[in-house]
Design a protein around this nucleic acid. Structure first.
Length: 206
DNA sequence: TCTAAGATGGGT
DNA sequence: CCCATCTTAGAA
């Protein structure tokens, strides 16, 4: 079992980066940790998507500030968790400075710690490789509910550490499920670790 | 007020 | 392929 206490929590400056696409790539290989209901669980981030509030129609905050998207306008380093299809709680990381609404959707993690807890949360019939291989399932596995919207990632409920993993290749492809965004749906803003078993959707053939 | 649609996932 | 399930945003 890995001792995560030796790793440093990512500082606020990591999240206030004005380039959300860069942050989405940098998040790959980092460990997302939660301490919820007295249970510590962690997963390696293996798939992310970047969303830009100013030039990207796929972003919930594109040219509009509403109660739901308000958190994205805050300073980077907070969680944006929203309910999708009335069922799934999708976890995003708010980035950029206050007033600039960018976020990174975490689409998949590889279980690293608390696997028994994750299995318990997901149910007994779920196979290991399906524990956290998707944006809805990883939230369930890590215990992230939309009540954690606006949670600071600099505190001790949900946070991210740098495990100094660099031995992987990054692949890029279109984002999933954003066809409504027209030409912006074509942007290659989904990033994932090549060959990782927990990536939710394989790369399209070019 | 009313309603359509949604950054999904699991089952047939 | 079908559908669960409910908030949100935008229309009326």
């Amino acid at each position: 079992m890995v001792d995560f206490s030796v790793y440093e929590k990512l500082p606020l400056a990591f999240y206030t980066n004005p380039n959300v696409v860069e942050v989405a790539k940098q998040l790959l290989g980092k460990y997302l940790i939660t301490n919820i209901d007295g249970n510590m669980t962690a997963g390696k981030i293996v798939e992310t998507e970047a969303y830009n509030g100013r030039n990207d129609k796929a972003c919930h905050a594109y040219h509009k500030r509403t109660p739901r998207t308000e958190v994205m306008y805050k300073k980077g380093g907070k969680a944006y968790v929203y309910l999708c299809y009335g069922i799934h709680h999708l976890f995003n990381i708010v980035t950029n400075e206050e007033g600039l609404a960018d976020a990174v959707l975490v689409r998949a993690v590889e279980p690293m710690m608390g696997v028994e807890i994750m299995q318990e949360r997901r149910g007994p019939k779920v196979k290991y490789k399906k524990l956290s291989a998707g944006p809805g399932t990883l939230s369930q596995a890590l215990g992230i509910h939309h009540q954690y919207n606006e949670t600071s990632l600099i505190e001790d409920t949900i946070w991210i550490v740098d495990g100094n993993e660099h031995s992987f290749e990054i692949e890029a492809d279109r984002r999933v499920g954003v066809d409504y965004a027209g030409e912006d749906a074509l942007r290659p803003w989904r990033f994932f670790i090549k060959g990782n078993d927990f990536v939710s959707v394989p790369k399209r053939n070019p």
